[in-house]
Amino acid sequence: MSELLSVEDLNAYYGESQILFDVSIDVGDNDVVGIFGRNGMGKTTLLDSIVNRIDRKTGRVVYDGEDISEWETHDIIREKIAYVPEDREIYPALTVRENLELAAPRTIDRSTREERLDYVFEKFERLGERESQRGGTLSGGEQQMLAIGRALVTDPDLLLLDEPTEGLAPTIIDDVIEILEELVTEDRAVLIVEQNITRMLPLIDRGYMIETGRIVADGDADYLDDEELQDEYLTV
């Protein structure tokens, strides 16, 4: 299997405290991979380390054959890696359209950009209706859609999703899952971090369990669909 992304022996730190210990994961082309674990186990730190948004780390992050571990965040993003952060990070004072335009790469021409915006507005009709509304006025679910939309305008080869269903009402979660189902069938690799494993298992090819900064189990969706395993690493 050709690996699009491999994280090798990653140790990550916030200030003095170490968050990740010798973490290694692989994501192949068009692979849909899940990272599961309880709160505070280092899931977000793993994604932050991949895009180099962290104080200090050791180990390697190899993407498409290149070691990107020392690259600056924006340079990593420009290699068609899109990051949807846990708390959405929508710009409240910018409109929906401006939020999307900001995320569109500088290198694409205007018509391509408009095409991609249209694609997002088609996928998320609610965003289309609120095109010129400010980001801060959107509901939680709409903000999540906008965050995903911002990732899609880059037409990413690798999509990093941090807890896409967190903090959303159950009906909204259904909407988001529906969108994710579509996304994972498309021609790209996806790395999803979640606590909510039951909703994610149908979407993923493979997954890892993480606890206190260490990978403790990995396997395909069938293997992870195991009550004992989930009880040990996920049930609160």
Binding site: R53, T73, D75, I77, Y91, L102
Partner: peptide, 9 residues
């Protein structure tokens, strides 16, 4: 930091 993850240098 958000600008950076949207590819802004």
């Amino acid at each position: 930091e958000t600008a950076e993850i949207l590819g802004v240098d």
